[in-house]
Design a protein around this nucleic acid. Structure first.
Lengths: 208, 208
DNA sequence: AAGGCAAGACGATACGTATCGGCTTGCCCG
DNA sequence: CGGGCAAGCCGATACGTATCGTCTTGCCTT
């Protein structure tokens, strides 16, 4: 028993880890997820295959960590009051604030540099429940939480129905964008984001 | 040129095709998409590997066709006025009609027999644009078209804002369900479907 | 000197192709 | 008519390639 020898993480090479992150992101962007092999990642990173197998359980896990690392670094660079990641602005105008954030999300989803890895990771999570849970917990939920706080503020300001669950309301706003992007049903544009905000806030029912 | 000899489809064995469909669906349900191999499908179907490679370009294509066939057959069985596939009911009560259909969709998405293959196919479409387009065209769009007609009827009955694009309004209703199911953020229940309908129709904004 | 490191050999699968008789199908010739 | 004959799909299987994940070997950092 207990033959599962855990490697000593204190001796781990941070240099190799970063090189593997970079190589993984680059290769997935260039050739797609399916066609990037562990061996290719190792070769590009100038690293032995075993160094990857020692520290990661799967190709998807490598990519996930690379992604998290990238997000953490770009968040750090961006500083406290950055563009679209560190909280949703509250100017008092809920519709305008939401449009601003959703437009930024549209731009992010349409960014060709991020599209490949993001699609790969999402698709993997759709099929692999374990990885999907990690994806949701570490990447998606923190972002959605920002909406919850902003929507709660709107609720306290009397701009949002008191009986609306912010967690559900948020999905009404975000899910349509995700839907178009993931399934590629129709183009994902700023105009679409605006339309979603207007319809979601105003409601579909006609009023006198 | 023209050395691409197309096989003669008139001599194709329908028996083999069905066996392959069934085997593919069963194996994907049992072992997941990644771990079902073409060779295993052939073995289970009692079919030569080449018979699969002769008629299908990829594993995903086999599954897609199997799925379409299944949908077509179950639609046929269900008859003209079946549960949830052949048009959205129009009782005059838009909210009730939508809840009925979305609840049925929830049940379908939660059906363990269909979950495996559907996830596999969707995930493949997320990554493979060509397959995704086929998936949308042959499976998703026809279903969404039903919403468009129902919503247009509601619009003519004065129950839906005249300035709302039905194609976008539909996404407000359907996307949240897809979102929860695909990403597994929270449980997908009838109560959630009802909440979505109420919020989408009534709007998020508080009213006097 | 202990252990992670780069490099790569290795067995195990799965892929997609090629080929083999066997069997059905449709056509030709007697 | 009707027996044979070519064509072509069928199940089956051998084959070479690609990738996997493990294992081994020295080197080099710590």
């Amino acid at each position: 028993m207990a033959s599962t020898k855990e490697p000593d993480s204190s001796r781990r090479s941070d240099r190799s880890r970063r090189a593997i992150h970079d190589a993984a992101l680059a290769l997935v962007g260039e050739r797609g997820y399916r066609r990037t092999t562990i061996e290719a990642i190792a070769a590009r990173a100038g690293v032995g295959k075993q160094t990857i197998y020692r520290w990661w359980p799967s190709k998807a896990a490598v990519l996930m960590e690379a992604f998290l690392d990238l997000a953490a670094r770009s968040a750090e660079e961006a500083g406290p009051q950055a563009g679209g990641e560190h909280g949703i602005p509250d100017t008092g105008d809920l519709a305008a604030d939401l449009k601003r954030v959703l437009r930024a999300t549209v731009d992010e989803l349409n960014d060709p540099a991020l599209e490949g890895p993001t699609r790969a990771l999402t698709a993997e999570g759709v099929v692999d429940a374990k990885l999907g849970a990690e994806f949701v917990e570490k990447l998606l939920d923190p972002q959605l939480a920002l909406y919850v706080t902003r929507l709660r503020a709107a609720q306290e300001a009397g701009q949002l129905r008191a009986d609306a669950d912010p967690r559900i309301a948020l999905e009404l706003l975000v899910a349509p964008l995700t839907h178009r992007w993931l399934l590629r049903t129709l183009p994902l544009t700023h105009a679409y984001a605006d339309a979603i905000v207007d319809l979601a806030l105003g409601g579909l029912t006609s009023r006198p």
